[in-house]
Design a protein around this nucleic acid. Sequence first.
DNA 1: ATGGATTTGTACGTATGTATC
DNA 2: TGATACATACGTACAAATCCA
Lengths: 358, 358
Amino acid sequence: MDFKSKHEYLRYVIKEYIKDNGLRPGSKLPTENEFQQQYDVSRHTVRLALSNLENEGIIYKEQGLGSFVADPSSKKKLKEIGVITTYISDYIFPYIIRGIETEISKSGYSMILMSTNNDRDLEKKAVQMMLERNVDGLIVEPTKSAYYNHNIGMYLKLKEYGIPTIMINAKYDEIDISSVMTDDYHSGFIAVKELVDNHHTNIGGIFKIDDRQGKERLKGYMAACYEFGIEYNSDNIIVYETETMQSTMHNEVNAMIKEARVTGIVCYNDKIANDLLDIIFENGYSIPKDFSIVSHDNSYISSLRTSLISSVEHPKDELGKKAAQLIIDSIENGADISEDYIFDTHLVRRTSVRKLED
Amino acid sequence: MDFKSKHEYLRYVIKEYIKDNGLRPGSKLPTENEFQQQYDVSRHTVRLALSNLENEGIIYKEQGLGSFVADPSSKKKLKEIGVITTYISDYIFPYIIRGIETEISKSGYSMILMSTNNDRDLEKKAVQMMLERNVDGLIVEPTKSAYYNHNIGMYLKLKEYGIPTIMINAKYDEIDISSVMTDDYHSGFIAVKELVDNHHTNIGGIFKIDDRQGKERLKGYMAACYEFGIEYNSDNIIVYETETMQSTMHNEVNAMIKEARVTGIVCYNDKIANDLLDIIFENGYSIPKDFSIVSHDNSYISSLRTSLISSVEHPKDELGKKAAQLIIDSIENGADISEDYIFDTHLVRRTSVRKLED
DNA sequence: ATGGATTTGTACGTATGTATC
DNA sequence: TGATACATACGTACAAATCCA
């Protein structure tokens, strides 16, 4: 066989050598010196041939060790998973993100992180960006999950392109994408039950209703009131949305406390519970003497203040981990994610609930 | 500038040459001979540099004609910035990450996020991954920044490949990479000053010393003690490292409190201050009656407990934003990041410091 | 069409540096 | 610590492709 040059010939020979000996990825090749002697060429020529093979992705070299057969599968695109959350820094989200990162980096994936600040336009831009990037998988925490979603088109495209997608914390009813969630209905229920068990009969609630979690917790609250024969006064069920949080706390919630219309309060989450504590203290009341509180998410907030808030556990890291596992399983083994994964919830008792005497 | 080898340097120079002269695809580069003479290297070295650039798709060569600038559009890549932090979910890091994300997404970049958990091996893996991904820019929060860094090689490669890099919170002395930081020396100083101004003369300190910030804060503490004529008892300067935090708090710090050896304490950060509060309460003391505390970082922790901790402000979001701006400016306009950016610090007063009567 | 100058490609030699075991 | 193997870098010579007078 006539080759254009010695190094081209050598390159061919080495490729044949790998094939003929059935060398697996990672197998060591002869050293430069050995090639040099065996084929009676200069080391420069050997290095040129090897260098070209390295650029082709057929071999790799390690200083001090030798040259090795490369893994052809690693030539493929870098593995990446997109993550879209409503917030990055707030509250429990960093823990969820950490759970995801820990899990996917174990399998060699990178995380592309974007946040929507609970804004639908930003959500659209984020999904679009993920599509452009052609990510291998996508984990999304839905924006304002309780409302009709205007970005359905984007999500349908994900399906079309065959990009495995999973939601966390909530899901969109209109779109058939599975979700990893907590059992928020049950959470709302056991929050009320805790107060009922402590003989409270006058129980208010503060709920965010622009996400699925808030709505579910509210439903659980209502169901428990019904089951335990608690009459709920609609004035004491205070609901808010992302944008009206501040004013709602300042007006409706403040009024409820000032007038002491209830003895027990269920809060949408610990952040709200924390703000509620301030309102209670400002009005000259104390916890749990005047008000008993049960909250949700069991975040760092619930254990930082001296009035430790009883709160319904949210798995956080675990939730992120589970979502990551499902996505990776879907990417690598084609496992289909057609069912939701629901985490059980339980109450973590602290010192914010007082037993009333009858 | 320090480069690992001549050909890497030359490779960098040629890239700069293309950028600085605004060469369009197809423009002819100087000949190998010209480079050889101009930079006083062998032709072999020039050819190696050009060969690498060819493999990267930056230039192409034609025998008998010369070397030319390649068309980058044929491999146009999505814009991405790598972010490596020690932790994702803990403490102030989510805020820094948010600051970065907000800023870079404005300019159409995606964020690749990895965490090191303050482990050098993971840091190496992370930088390696970023190199493989060929990110457009990199923001790194150094791991154990007070120690000699074993990953210098990785960071030099970043320079060689011309990937703009900036550090946040700290920097490695051995590597010439600029950093966005807070003035931690000054922070430590004003923390002591606050206690001195309130007539404390017996001032202890708890510092983490495996990162630059902790060391600087400790230096500031010492300098202030010296300047204000405070005698410091070395038993009351308690230092710890990431791994020994728990045991140090449990033993040394607990002893200092139990024996009430000091009246004022400067804490490395709010997390430590928060743990310190627990130790103080467990020993039957209260704040600020028995102990006055000044802490660092002004995080959510400092304002969540009923004993609100006076703390030296850390810019958090702003720091992330600034780092992102510098990186983007460097990527898009070739601005060079040769100087550190230092944020001023100031004390946020709360209720953890009591004025002593003389 | 051709020869000479230019420019990159191939090839050999030698020495020393650096990473790994 | 020495031996091994790849990396860097200097040198020389000639071949092949291109361009132009």
